[in-house]
């Protein structure tokens, strides 16, 4: 199961939970399971998030594979200049 880390201020929507384990093969599946567990996260996830999977950052990509031992960090959608 992938280890999921919720970044600081998003923890307000998970009742303070920072780390959890979720069984998911892709980012889409992971985000769906995450919002099912914490409905308060829905708005943020719907408007877009970035994910760091084992240190590599992915923007809003549904079908990025997640390994069983992966660490996934949920972060805000990032922008540049």
């Amino acid at each position: 199961m992938a280890r999921v880390v919720i970044f600081g201020s998003l923890r307000a929507f998970t009742g303070g939970v920072e780390m959890m384990e979720i069984e998911a093969a892709t980012t889409r599946e992971l985000l769906k399971k995450l919002t099912a567990r914490y409905p308060a996260l829905f708005d943020t996830i719907e408007s877009g998030v970035s994910l760091a999977i084992d240190g590599e950052v992915f923007k809003d990509a549904w079908f990025t594979p997640i390994g069983p031992e992966s660490e996934v960090v949920i972060m805000p959608l990032m922008v540049g200049g």
Partner: peptide
């Protein structure tokens, strides 16, 4: 490489 960054991900 391997540092857990201050914003979450572990650096490659």
């Amino acid at each position: 490489e391997g540092t857990k960054s201050s914003y979450g991900p572990t650096f490659k």
